[in-house]
Amino acid sequence: MNKRLSQKIFFTLFRLISLMIVIVLFSILGFIIFNGAKSISWHFLTQMPTDGMTKGGIFPAIVGTLILVLGSMIFAFPVGVAAAIYMNEYVKEGPVKRFMRLMTSNLAGVPSIVFGLFGMALFVNQLHFGDSIIAGSLTLGLLALPVVIRTTEEALKQVDDSFRLASIGLGATKLQTIGKVTLPIAFPNIITGLILSIGRVSGETAPILFTVAAYFLPKLPHSIFDQVMALPYHLYVIATSGTNITESRPIAYGTALVLISIVLICNITASVIRNVLGKRNK
């Protein structure tokens, strides 16, 4: 009886805690939607900011964020997948592999502001890219790299060895096996990781702070050496150091809503892709 009672108490406790996590998420969402929904309009999404960013839209920030996400993935995806292939398919278990894993984990643990400073030192100053899309994309790409590596490695690990053996047994080289069997089977999970890291990258502020983000730039970029506005930085600017913080508050909430929507859409797309493509492999 006593055991049963303590079981009940603990399960109730666990349930409440789980519920709380859901409540926290919904509170944040609800708060943002409640305050931001009235700012959202076609005009808001497609116009330049005006009147010292207290009026107008956030179009350049949306475009800027999309460009930065794309740019960072163009860099992080091939590099991360290649690194994961090397680590999972080529390196044998041992000190080298353990060391590389540890370094990947450490890279994931580096604070994003440090990435920002590093990106500024290397890309902006040393390589003379200046504050630019390319510098910001590479910095964000570095930040996304450990996520891409780890999710790809997990995806490859889940591919049953019997498929690799079957391919090798038919005389395929290791490279052919990876290209024609292992990667296609792991693909849904790799893409899932990619989309999750897009969600992560699109919300980062610190790495773009010193590398690309413009305070106010009401036009679209012409080349990868131009600066852009970006949603998270724009939000920071109008919430803390804009020309008129009170007046631009609705725009801040609207921006937050757009940003959080992008992240949520990424996460939902990721799980849909995993389900659809995953089923096809069954």
């Binding site: 019997s162 498929f163 079957a166 047994g169 005389g171 089977i185 492999n281 069954k282």
Partner: peptide
């Protein structure tokens, strides 16, 4: 030149 069939059927997906 040497084909192999494994214990568990392992067709590719």
């Amino acid at each position: 030149k040497v084909g192999m069939v494994f214990q568990k059927p392992n067709p590719f997906p």
